[in-house]
Amino acid sequence: MNVQLPNTKPHYIILDGLRGVAAITVVAFHILEAHATSHLDMMINHGYLAVDFFFLLSGFVIGYAYDDRWQKLSLGEFFKRRLIRLHPLIIFGMLVGAVCFYFQDSAPWPKIDEVPLSTLLVVMIIGFTLIPLPISMDIRGWQEMHPLNGPAWTLFFEYVANILYAVGLRRLPNIALAVLAVLAAGALIHLGLTNPYGDVIGGWSLDPTQLYIGSVRLLFPFLAGLLLSRIIKLGTISNAFTWCSLLLLIVLAMPRIGGSENLWMNGLYDSLTIILIFPIVIYLGASGRVEGPIQNNICKFLGDISYPIYITHYPLIYIYTGWVQEHRYSIEDTALVAVLVFVGSIALSYAALKLYDEPLRNWLTRKFVAK
């Protein structure tokens, strides 16, 4: 629990750093996913589980930041704070997605002369609101609720979690939260064991099956994170950032388990990683000490770019994926371009943070948030 700010709670800077590690891993996962032929041969095979880690971390941070403030905090004030924190970059990510869609020129994707500009603008404007689009309005062909910026589906569920927390979950005693978390864990294990793909991947489409998957992926991590923020007694752990980063990278990069013959094995790995390993990572990270100014700066940088890189990188992935699939390139053929996309995603996120997000959030906070 690492840096004490004046008149504030201690700030979990190591958890910020771990969020950044997971977010950068997602970028690498999506770049390499363009070369996969199925779920079985994806490189950084379990990178998709970073989403579930984000949900658990969100529950922990929301509970820690807001549980003891409701005597002075109104619902309106809470939602204003969350909108100011999250929504500017949602709008920016949709703008980047619209620009990339307009100029995309690979065979797998529709050209702008196949999708009227007016339709593109409507999809973009609806995307600004984060209202999910029905499959009938999908202009890309991947059945995404946000076809200009696919990962925005997780922000839709993040907003759902924030609403559930504000209107009800915050009032529940720990025993009730624990019961709900156990039930949600059972649903998560069931999903992992029965999903026909042998994993917990899904949640990005506005159809019953995908909405169910997204809800199951949200509920246990968020409830567990919220409960964890209330009940854990933190220790003092040295080198926590290093060890937690390694553990996180190992579970996300783990090769596919069970192959095509035993799909349930990989689904069980997914669910148990979310239920057992991720809470341990959060506990260790929250209990850790920053080891000197260099590690402090690394954690701060990773934490600063974690959300921007997650919500802005995927329009670049669309272009890269289309190019790879059109020409049937291997990763060896495109290694230099892949590195450029990776570095470009980091650069774009940092520019968005410093030139757009931070100035806008500071202005909105001064204008609309009560002192």
Rank of each mutant, 00 (worst) to 15 (best):
G97N: 05
G97C: 11
G97Q: 12
G97F: 13
G97H: 11
A98T: 10
A98F: 14
A98S: 13
A98V: 15
A98N: 08
A98P: 13
V99P: 00
V99C: 12
C100T: 12
C100P: 00
C100H: 05
F101I: 06
F101P: 12
F101N: 11
Y102W: 15
F103S: 09
F103L: 11
F103N: 12
F103K: 13
F103W: 15
Q104A: 00
Q104R: 09
Q104I: 00
D105E: 07
S106E: 07
A107C: 04
A107N: 14
A107M: 11
P108G: 07
P108C: 09
P108S: 10
W109D: 01
W109V: 00
W109M: 02
W109N: 00
W109K: 00
W109L: 08
W109T: 00
P110D: 11
K111M: 05
K111Y: 10
K111F: 10
I112F: 05
D113M: 12
D113S: 14
D113P: 15
D113K: 09
D113R: 13
E114T: 08
E114C: 05
E114L: 02
E114R: 08
V115G: 05
V115N: 13
V115A: 02
V115W: 03
P116C: 10
P116M: 15
P116F: 11
L117F: 15
S118Y: 07
S118F: 04
S118R: 04
S118V: 06
T119K: 15
T119L: 15
T119M: 14
T119I: 14
T119W: 00
L120T: 03
L121P: 10
L121E: 04
L121F: 15
L121A: 03
L121K: 11
V122F: 14
V122E: 14
V123P: 08
V123G: 01
V123M: 03
V123L: 02
V123I: 05
V123A: 07
M124Q: 05
M124V: 01
M124K: 02
M124P: 13
M124C: 06
I125V: 12
I125Y: 10
I126L: 03
I126G: 04
G127W: 02
G127V: 00
G127D: 01
F128K: 02
F128V: 03
F128H: 03
F128T: 02
T129S: 10
T129D: 04
T129F: 08
L130T: 01
L130P: 00
I131Y: 14
I131N: 13
I131T: 08
I131K: 03
I131F: 15
I131L: 11
P132R: 05
P132F: 13
P132S: 10
P134M: 04
P134A: 02
P134N: 02
P134E: 04
P134H: 02
P134R: 00
I135M: 07
S136P: 08
S136I: 04
S136L: 09
M137G: 13
M137Q: 10
M137R: 14
M137Y: 01
D138K: 10
D138R: 11
D138S: 08
D138W: 13
I139Y: 01
